[in-house]
Amino acid sequence: MLIERKEERAVSKTKARHMAAYTAFVAPAVLFFILIIVIPFFRAILFSFQDWNGISSHIRWAGWSNYTKLMHDSGFGKSFVFTFKYVIATTILLNVLGLLLALVLNMALRTKNVLRTAFFLPYVIGPVIIGFIWQFIITGLFPEIGKATGLALFQKNWLSLPDHSFWSLVIVTVWHSAGYFMVIYLAALQGVPKDLLEAAEMDGAGRYLRFWHVLLPLIRPAMTINLFLAISNGFKAFDLNFALTRGGPFGTTESLAYHIYLDAFAKNLFTYASAKAVVFFLVLASITLVQVAAMKRREVEL
């Protein structure tokens, strides 16, 4: 009996030590998550039902007036349409280009390691820096290319034309993030069993059939992740929008995140911006949940 009790005490002490170690490591992260994410989130929900300019000590209860006002806000609707178009364009291009790069670099190339580094390197640089670099390229270098080649496309100021500025944002986003999507697809491709591909080849399946019926179903978990990342990052786009176009020309490239930022910190409409942020969160959460649920049903488990 004494031996059993000693063993139980030793086990309980070990569990207590493990629990203390887990708490010591996890508690700081949980604390910062609550302070930086959870509390501001619920604070924003509370602000959305109030009327406050961020300066006055008096905060008035506004009820649903911020949300009803939002229904007639043409600027919010315009930024939502732009963001939706931006998300569709970047999601398609990032996943197509990322998958193509992964398929090429999954081959037995001598320079594949160098190419992987080269394609992934832009993602390491901050989006704000990328935005300023590309602003210089578009406004300073493109006109010189236009003069040297005579191409009318490069002789225009892309950032002063609505359609061109939209595609400028899309091109820079794809150039910046395609390498990250490539790495995820490449990891999924390298996890596909080679015997399945060899069996399909022996059965007479060509490259297209092997890709469509073997590779594509087996890398759907990676597609789920990349689609989720592309959609969520597209809706939350702010850094490149701020650094490259600043919402111009005439607000035609104003993303939802940048639009809310301007309302809150340029116009001092904190509570109205909070209402927009809450609606933005609900839209983004709904779209991503539906996308993940739809893709999860089609995944193949090995």
Rank of each mutant, 00 (worst) to 15 (best):
R43K: 13
S65T: 15
A237D: 06
S48M: 04
G140T: 01
R210W: 05
K296W: 11
F120D: 12
G77F: 11
L196S: 05
V174P: 05
D239Y: 10
V124P: 09
L282K: 05
V174T: 00
F120L: 14
D239C: 05
L115S: 07
Y22V: 13
A264F: 06
V279T: 10
H58Q: 15
F242T: 02
I219L: 04
T111R: 13
A294L: 15
M223Y: 11
F166Q: 02
R116S: 12
A285I: 09
T14E: 15
T83C: 01
A205N: 06
G234I: 03
F49I: 13
V104E: 07
L115V: 05
P221T: 01
D51G: 09
Q291M: 13
P249A: 00
F120P: 11
Y208I: 15
I133R: 03
S286P: 01
V172G: 01
T91P: 02
L169D: 01
V87L: 01
L186R: 02
L284S: 13
K267S: 12
L31E: 09
L97V: 15
L103D: 08
L269W: 12
I138M: 07
A21G: 09
P127D: 10
E8Q: 14
F228M: 12
R207P: 06
A20I: 11
M19H: 10
D203N: 00
L240P: 02
R5P: 02
L97F: 15
I137Q: 04
A273M: 05
A237M: 07
S286Y: 06
A20K: 12
K78F: 06
L302S: 11
G204R: 03
I219E: 01
V124C: 08
F82R: 00
V290M: 14
I138D: 05
F33T: 11
